[in-house]
Computed example of a mutant assay.
Amino acid sequence: MTQAAVTRAAVDEHPFLRRALRAGVVNHAAAARFLDVDGDEDAVAAAIRRYSEDLPEFDADARDAHVSMQSGLGPSDDGLLVVAGCGFEPGEGDLTALLASGDVDTQTLASALERLHAADVDPVAAGVAEDTLAVVVERRDGADALRVVEDALDAVPV
């Protein structure tokens, strides 16, 4: 593989860097040092710059979706959200589900999860199917998570 191909592959292993390149907010020399690709740092920085020129411009779309909150979720074999047989359903539990219904997809989920982690909210589970996104959090994180998910819907990177 050429150094340019190796550099592109290294960038693609770090989605945050690829997104920042699309937004035009990256110091290419610093990115070259971060990636630690074998070769001359200036050549790697140049390869990163050329790659960023080939990427589509960063854009964010607002999504038309309604977010609701459902508290009292507990473990279940089925229910509101199920992953590999581990589910969550309303009842006597201490978890809260945030449900976004409407124009949602996996990109919306990824954006919401990234923002939740930045806000120090650690989701218990999350998923998206058809027109519904679900994120399960600890009850004490419910209100903060609701605001974060609503904000995420206003600017989903595309």
Results as ranks from 00 to 15, higher is better:
6 V>Q: 15
7 T>L: 09
11 V>D: 05
11 V>E: 12
14 H>Y: 08
16 F>L: 13
17 L>S: 05
19 R>H: 01
24 G>Q: 04
28 H>Q: 10
30 A>Y: 00
33 R>A: 14
35 L>D: 11
35 L>W: 11
38 D>E: 09
42 D>C: 08
43 A>C: 06
54 D>N: 07
55 L>N: 01
58 F>T: 08
61 D>M: 11
67 V>K: 03
71 S>C: 05
74 G>H: 00
78 D>S: 14
78 D>Y: 05
80 L>P: 12
92 E>S: 14
98 L>F: 09
99 L>E: 06
106 T>W: 00
106 T>L: 04
107 Q>R: 15
108 T>L: 00
109 L>M: 08
109 L>C: 03
112 A>L: 11
115 R>H: 14
117 H>F: 14
121 V>Y: 08
125 A>H: 05
126 A>Y: 12
131 D>N: 15
132 T>A: 13
132 T>E: 12
135 V>T: 02
142 G>N: 02
143 A>K: 06
143 A>D: 15
144 D>N: 03
145 A>V: 11
146 L>F: 09
147 R>T: 07
148 V>G: 12
148 V>S: 10
149 V>Q: 03
150 E>G: 01
153 L>Y: 10
154 D>K: 11
155 A>I: 00
155 A>V: 08
156 V>K: 10
157 P>F: 02
158 V>W: 04
158 V>H: 11
